[in-house]
C-alpha cells in the first residue's frame, strides 16, 4: 500500500480522528466492564481473593486455581454466569469449598489475585452464611433438623444452636457467627429444603454495612 505524503493538516486531522476513535472504544468498553461488574455482587470467589475491583485488576482468568482445586469446586465463568466472563467462582449449592488446610488454589495463583500467603484457610473470606429462609428452615418450624450446624467444618464455632422463642414457642435456632464463618458453603450444600434456607452471600451483601443508628450514633 503506497502512501502519498501527507500535509500537516491531514496528519493532525488523522491523529485527532484516531484519538477520538480510541477514546470512544475505550469509554464504550469501560461502560460495558462497569455493567458486567455489577453481576459480580452474587458470585463467590476462591479463598484469599482480593475484594471487588482489585480482583478484576489482577485476575488474568488463567484457571490455575481451578486446576489446583482437588474437589472441582471452582470453575471459570462462562457468558451468563454470575461472575464476569472467565473469572473463577463457585456455586456453594453445587460443590462447596472443602477448606483444604494448605489452600492449593490460592497458592497456584500467578498474579496475586488470590493471596498466595494466606496464613490459614480459617482466615478466608469467601462470603458469609445467612439463614435467609426463616419461613422454610425446619428449625424455625420447631423441628431439630440442624443439618447446617452438623456439617459445618468449623465445628460449633461458625454455626451454633441457640434456644430462641418464636411465636411463643421455644426453638433451637442455627446462628451464624460471621467472624468465624469463611463462607465455604457446606451448610448451603447440605440444607435439606428444596431451595436452600441457609445461603452463602458475599460479605457486603450478607451482613450489610456498619454505620450509624437512627439516633446518629455509631452502630
Amino acid at each position: 500500500m503506497a502512501q502519498k505524503p501527507q500535509s500537516r493538516r491531514e496528519v493532525l486531522t488523522n491523529a485527532a480522528k484516531a484519538a477520538g476513535v480510541a477514546c470512544l472504544a475505550g469509554l464504550s468498553l469501560t461502560a460495558y466492564v462497569e455493567s458486567a461488574r455489577r453481576a459480580e455482587a452474587k458470585a463467590l470467589r476462591p479463598p484469599g481473593a482480593l475484594k471487588g475491583d482489585a480482583f478484576l485488576s489482577a485476575c488474568v482468568r488463567c484457571g490455575l486455581c481451578v486446576r489446583a482445586c482437588p474437589f472441582d469446586t471452582l470453575k471459570l465463568a462462562e457468558i451468563g454466569d454470575e461472575a464476569p466472563l472467565g473469572t473463577p467462582f463457585f456455586v456453594a449449592r453445587e460443590i462447596p469449598c472443602f477448606m483444604c488446610e494448605d489452600v492449593p488454589c490460592a497458592k497456584a495463583c500467578p498474579t496475586g489475585a488470590l493471596d498466595r500467603d494466606i496464613p490459614s484457610i480459617r482466615k478466608a473470606d469467601m462470603g458469609v452464611a445467612v439463614l435467609v429462609g426463616q419461613e422454610t428452615c425446619l428449625n424455625y418450624k420447631g423441628m431439630n433438623c440442624s443439618i447446617c450446624h452438623r456439617v459445618c467444618p468449623i465445628v460449633d464455632e461458625a454455626i451454633t444452636l441457640e434456644w430462641q422463642t418464636h411465636r411463643g414457642r421455644k426453638m433451637l435456632i442455627p446462628v451464624v457467627h460471621s467472624q468465624k464463618c469463611t463462607g465455604c458453603g457446606t451448610c448451603e450444600k447440605h440444607c435439606v429444603v428444596d431451595r436452600a434456607a441457609i445461603r452463602v452471600l458475599p460479605r457486603d451483601l450478607g451482613l450489610g454495612g456498619t454505620g450509624r443508628n437512627r439516633a446518629g450514633r455509631p452502630a
Partner: peptide, 10 residues
C-alpha cells in the same frame, strides 16, 4: 479508567 483488565471482558 475502569480498574479492570478490560479487554478480557470481550
Amino acid at each position: 479508567v475502569s480498574g479492570s483488565i478490560a479487554w478480557e471482558f470481550v
